[in-house]
Amino acid sequence: MSSITKETVCYVADLARLYLTDEEIEQMTESLNKILEFEEQLNSVNTDNVEPMAHAVPLNNVMREDVVEESMPIREAMLNAPDEVEGFFRVPRIIEKD
């Protein structure tokens, strides 16, 4: 585990769709490095032949029958829409302008 660079912070922020100011990039780099240093301790644990554990429940095959249930009224769907146009959610242009 190596330390995280500012470039990596910018790359990760881009993946996470978070705009960060230059100052925030500095601070983020510093605090993430502190946390990653703390995380170093995991390296000392021998995990050879250990199965990863993603779930805390011993369940499988939880399924529903293929039955149609009522959808919600469009007014409810649009209740929190930041920008609604005639029953659609409107978003700014998807492709950046050249």
Binding site: R64, D66, V68, E69, E70, I74
Partner: peptide, 22 residues
């Protein structure tokens, strides 16, 4: 299928926008 993969909304084609959602 009649309903969606993870909820009970209908999968039928050609309905008015945002009327088959939950």
């Amino acid at each position: 299928t009649d309903s969606k993969l993870f909820c009970g909304c209908s999968t039928s084609f050609g309905s008015e926008a945002n009327t088959q959602i939950c």
